[in-house]
Each structure stands twice: as structure tokens, then as C-alpha cells.
């Protein structure tokens, strides 16, 4: 079998297997899997409204996935995407409510604030890793908690004791009447355009620039990079800063598009952590992240329809979604089976 055929077959078989196992789980629990999957399908592609909402859901996953994947390519495990996203969310919302400016200044300013906040949140673990060899996983996990509770405290201060900020001024909003009309008044906003542009930016940095060459070299082999005259420390810090900026932009999508405000959170949003899976599903390539984010975003949003339309409890739904993603992630095992089958055929 050609590698091209395997490359297409593996994800297809993975998804089918995931669906089958998911169906078995629904059957065993006493629910009708056909109704369940119909509800899932309708929840994703049912009408223009759900399609709009699905795309909206995909947007932050794209940026979180990019953030994780970019760090990965530079040999760094950024578990702090969640925290970087949260500070980005807050920064964008703050700029959105604190000042009122012409849109052409206000919107970019709010977006940049989010990217800068995420970048600073990435800079600290990058600096500690480069200068003192503190493992980035530990620092980024801790930075998540600092982000969560610091932003909660700041929200309280900004809102005068409340649980959420005012809604942002329209001049900082990514929402558009055009997109809303197009999708039967979903919350679809222009963030998806920004996210897709960022996919291009990541591809460009990694594949076209000397910076990308260095980041990848450092990611694979510190010693050889140093031998070749690259500044390993600088590259580690830069990788974390850029990764954090992507994550911060993910927060801006929520602040300026989906919610148009920031509220204090009891716990993590989960988007940043799901970003790890998104990046790994996409093999840490920019195009792969589109695939991973689409799978994650659409399943997560579509699943919301399953309790209502098919009467399946949310717990079962979450198991089914997890099983599907599990099988997609296990593509390697399926690839192994396919290769073995092909070898046996050859031997005969």
C-alpha cells in the first residue's frame, strides 16, 4: 500500500472505529446510538446557525493548538497555554472596556494587548528555562494558577466588586452583522479569519525564515545548534514568547468575539489543555492544527445537542466524544496494523 493511501485511510478508519465504540457505549447504557449520532451531526452541520457556532467554537482551539504546536516544534512543552489564554482574554476585554477609540485603532489595540499579555506569560517560563534550566512544564502549570486567580482578582477590581466586566465597546468587537446574518444569528465573528491568518504566520515562521530554521534546530538538538553558532537561550525564550502570543490571541477571540466581556472563573476554561491534544492530533504542523481544531471544536459543540435531541445524558456524551478523539489519536496503532496486513499480503 502506498504511503499516500495509508495517510488517508488511517484517520478515516480511526474515526469509524471511534464511532463504533462510541455506539457500543451508548447501546450498553440503553440509548439509541443512531439517534445519538444524528443529534451529533445536526449539532455540527444541522443548519447555518449550528455551522456558524461550530466555526466559532473551532476558533480558540485553532490558536491554542498553534501555541502548543509552535512550542513543541522548538522542543518545549507549553502546558501554560491555558494561563496565557486567560491573561489574553482579560487583557483584550480590559482594553475593550477601558477606552473608546475609533475601531481601526481600538480593535487592533485590544488584539495586540491580548497577544502581549500571553507573550509575557510565556516569556517568564522561557526565561527561567533558558537561564536557570527550570523545567518549563512545572513553571507553566504554576503560571496557569497564577493567571486564573490574578485575573479573577483584577476583574473584581475593574468591575468594582462584580463578577464580570462591562461589555466591550462595539469599536473593539470582532462580531459582524454580516456574519451573523449569514449564519442565522449565530455568534460567528471575524476571529476565525485571524486564527487562519495565524496558521499562515506559524507556517511562514517555521518554513520560510532563518528564525524558524533555528527554532527547529534547537528543538531537535541543543548541542548541535550551539555548535552551529545559534543562540540556544534566545531561541528558547523567543519560542515561548511566540507560543504565548498565539495563546493570548485565543483569549482575545473569547473576549472580543464570543463573549464580549470577561467574567471571573471558578476553574480553567479547558481550551488551553485541549490545545495540547489539538496540536498532537495535528502532528504539530500548522495544517494539522486546522484538522485537530476542527475535530475538537465540532465534536465539542455538536455534542451539546445530544442531550436535548436524543436524550442522552451529558456524561455518556462526554465519554463518546472522548472515545472518538482517543481513536483518532491512536492512529499510530492502526497504521501499524495496516502495514502488517500489507506485509502479509506481500509475503503471500
Amino acid at each position: 500500500m502506498s504511503t499516500k493511501a495509508t495517510n488517508i485511510l488511517v484517520p478515516v478508519i480511526s474515526v469509524i472505529l471511534g464511532l463504533i465504540v462510541g455506539a457500543i457505549i451508548m447501546l450498553v447504557s440503553g440509548y439509541n446510538p443512531i439517534d445519538g449520532y444524528a443529534a451529533l451531526w445536526n449539532g455540527i452541520f444541522g443548519d447555518l446557525y449550528t455551522i456558524g457556532e461550530t466555526i466559532r467554537q473551532i476558533t480558540p482551539y485553532l490558536l491554542a493548538g498553534l501555541a502548543v504546536a509552535f512550542a513543541f516544534r522548538s522542543g518545549l512543552f507549553n502546558i501554560g497555554v491555558e494561563g496565557q489564554l486567560i491573561v489574553g482574554w482579560f487583557a483584550a476585554a480590559y482594553v475593550g472596556v477601558a477606552v473608546e477609540l475609533p475601531m481601526i485603532i481600538h480593535l487592533p489595540l485590544a488584539i495586540l494587548a491580548a497577544a502581549a499579555a500571553g507573550a509575557i506569560w510565556g516569556f517568564i517560563p522561557g526565561l527561567l528555562k533558558a537561564k536557570f534550566h527550570v523545567h518549563e512544564v512545572i513553571v507553566t502549570i504554576m503560571m496557569n494558577y497564577i493567571a486564573l486567580h490574578t485575573t479573577n482578582a483584577l476583574i473584581k477590581t475593574v468591575s468594582g466588586g462584580g463578577d464580570r466586566t462591562e461589555s466591550i465597546f462595539a469599536s473593539a468587537s470582532l462580531r459582524s452583522e454580516f456574519l451573523e446574518n449569514l449564519t442565522e444569528f449565530s455568534c460567528l465573528h471575524f476571529g476565525i479569519v485571524i486564527a487562519l491568518v495565524m496558521v499562515g504566520v506559524m507556517w511562514f515562521i517555521l518554513e520560510k525564515t532563518t528564525l524558524g530554521f533555528e527554532l527547529k534546530a534547537v528543538g531537535f538538538n541543543h548541542n548541535a545548534s550551539q555548535y552551529a553558532g545559534m543562540n540556544v537561550n534566545k531561541n528558547i525564550i523567543l519560542a515561548m514568547v511566540i507560543s504565548g502570543a498565539f495563546a493570548g490571541l485565543g483569549g482575545a477571540m473569547e473576549a472580543l468575539g464570543t463573549f464580549e466581556y470577561v467574567s471571573s472563573k471558578a476553574g480553567f476554561t479547558g481550551i488551553g489543555f485541549d490545545g495540547i491534544a489539538v496540536a498532537l492530533l495535528g502532528m504539530n504542523t500548522p495544517l494539522g492544527v486546522i484538522f485537530g481544531a476542527t475535530l475538537f471544536g465540532s465534536l465539542k459543540y455538536g455534542a451539546l445537542n445530544m442531550p436535548n435531541a436524543a436524550g442522552i445524558p451529558l456524561e455518556i456524551v462526554e465519554i463518546v466524544i472522548a472515545v472518538i478523539i482517543f481513536f483518532v489519536a491512536s492512529g499510530y496503532i492502526i497504521r501499524l496494523f495496516l502495514l502488517r496486513a500489507a506485509k502479509k499480503k506481500e509475503a503471500k
Binding site: T210, F213, K216, A217, F220, N221, N223, A224, S225, Q226, Y227, A228, G229
Partner: peptide, 20 residues
Amino acid sequence: KHGLVLDFPIGHNISLQTYY
């Protein structure tokens, strides 16, 4: 350890000090 980035294509390795 030092001479090659083993996961890079050999072509990239040949320009390891001159890529910039």
C-alpha cells in the same frame, strides 16, 4: 551530538552554519 541535527534533512545539515 554536535555535528548533525539528526532529525533534519541532510541538506539542512549541510547549511547548518551558513543558513543565515
